[in-house]
Amino acid sequence: MIKIKAIIFCWDFIFSLIISLFLLFILKGNLNGTFLKDIYNTGVTVLSILFTIFFAALAIIISSWNDDFIKLLEEDNDFINLLHNFRYSLKVTFITLIITIFLYTYTNYNIIKNNNYVQIKYIPIIFSFVFFYSLFTIFNSALDSIKFVENMVRYIKNKFIS
């Protein structure tokens, strides 16, 4: 189970919070709904693409393992930790994608009802937090994937050269 303290004091959470706090101070009043709809649409697009790439990366990791290599990784719980990080990133990204789709649909619906629709600044600030947090967790998982592949290459190289 991932500990709350480990999540809050991790760089991805802190950077997302800093971005959101920055937006809190620079955004004034209500924001144009059409502008926000475009932002949310971009968020849906980016998260959908990343979600797909994320699954592909996970499939590569799962399909490329070697039993001896996994046993070696499990001595320090590295493989289980890798899978936990992927699971956590997947959940964060999925929840963020659902939130973003909802915000896009909600904003678009209100624009249709009222062409001059505006949204209070707190909604896009919350969106920015979850969006950037999701991006950063995916980035962390990508780095973990690269490290996994590097270690596997090193292991195979040592196994066949030795």
Rank of each mutant, 00 (worst) to 15 (best):
N81M: 08
S20E: 05
N151C: 11
K91I: 15
F69L: 05
F136M: 04
I14Q: 09
L143C: 12
T42M: 12
N41E: 10
D12L: 08
L82I: 09
K147H: 13
L21D: 06
N108P: 07
I39P: 06
Y155W: 07
Y117V: 07
N114T: 12
L50D: 06
A56R: 08
W65R: 15
L135R: 00
L17W: 10
L17N: 07
F132C: 13
S16V: 00
K159I: 09
L23S: 02
K121H: 03
S89A: 05
I111M: 06
Y117N: 06
A142F: 14
N32P: 02
I125V: 04
S134I: 01
S145M: 02
Y133V: 01
T34S: 12
N140I: 09
N108Q: 10
G29I: 09
F35S: 14
K5Q: 08
D76L: 14
S20H: 03
D67K: 15
H84V: 15
A56P: 05
L97I: 04
N66W: 10
E150V: 11
S48M: 09
F51A: 04
I125F: 01
F22R: 07
N32Q: 05
I26H: 08
I111W: 08
D38M: 07
K147Y: 14
S128Y: 01
F55A: 02
N85A: 07
V46I: 12
I112E: 08
I53P: 11
D38L: 07
I80R: 11
F127S: 00
I123V: 10
F136E: 00
K71D: 15
Y40S: 02
Y106T: 03
I138C: 05
F54W: 05
N66L: 08
T96K: 04
